[in-house]
């Protein structure tokens, strides 16, 4: 601290007198906050229950920091019908946490929306307490062979949910590449 006596005296005085203004030295650990780091899409072929495909987006250190570690391309069979199960996870800590449970509990405030390229259609099959679509479960129907995108977004819509995707805050928005084989 060079030789600034006055500043040193001030530091000493301040530390002696005012240590009680809150716990400066122990900030909250941002890793302990609730965070969605991963999306897991689980497709089960409705005609062939052994055809199960799982695709993942994972960015364990959250927004900023390093780039996502997993960003799968969705590959589905053509002219098939799949049951889709979506899971949202917090994998920032040592043990992964399933956020889907909380979303299901607050179903009236949440909506999972899907936007897909032509050829593939998504029908939401679950509902919230107000009989509005929720989107954690859906039926995905593919047609001909081709490539495109599959966008999933999780909307937080407290007290404003109408089923419209344009409303609310976006908690998750991931655009997967998709190949229909």
């Amino acid at each position: 601290m060079k030789n600034n006596l006055f500043l040193m005296a001030l530091v000493a005085f301040a530390q002696f007198t005012f240590q009680s203004c809150g716990d400066v030295e122990n900030p909250p650990n941002p890793n302990e906050e609730e965070l969605i780091t991963s999306v897991e899409l689980n497709f089960t072929n409705e005609d062939n229950s052994s055809d199960v495909r799982t695709f993942v987006f994972k960015d364990a250190d959250g927004e900023g920091g390093s780039a996502p570690t997993d960003f799968d391309t969705i590959r589905l069979a053509s002219n098939s019908v799949y049951a889709l199960n979506v899971r949202f996870l917090d994998e920032s800590g040592d043990t992964p946490e399933d956020i889907t449970v909380e979303i299901a509990e607050e179903a009236n405030d949440h909506l999972v929306c899907y936007t897909t390229s032509a050829g593939t259609s998504v029908n939401i099959t679950d509902e919230d307490g107000n009989k509005l679509a929720l989107g954690l479960k859906a039926q995905v129907t593919t047609t001909d062979v081709g490539t495109g995108t599959f966008m999933l977004s999780l909307k937080h819509q407290p007290d404003i949910k109408t089923g419209d995707c344009a409303l609310g805050d976006t908690d998750v928005e991931v655009t997967f590449e998709m190949e229909v084989e």
Partner: peptide, 22 residues
């Protein structure tokens, strides 16, 4: 002379700090 302390809660935006000025 000035002594400042900042304590944050919730999401991170700026860190906790002590600042001493003279």
């Amino acid at each position: 002379g000035e002594y400042q302390s900042n304590v944050g809660n919730g999401r991170y935006f700026i860190p906790n700090y002590f600042r001493y000025k003279s």
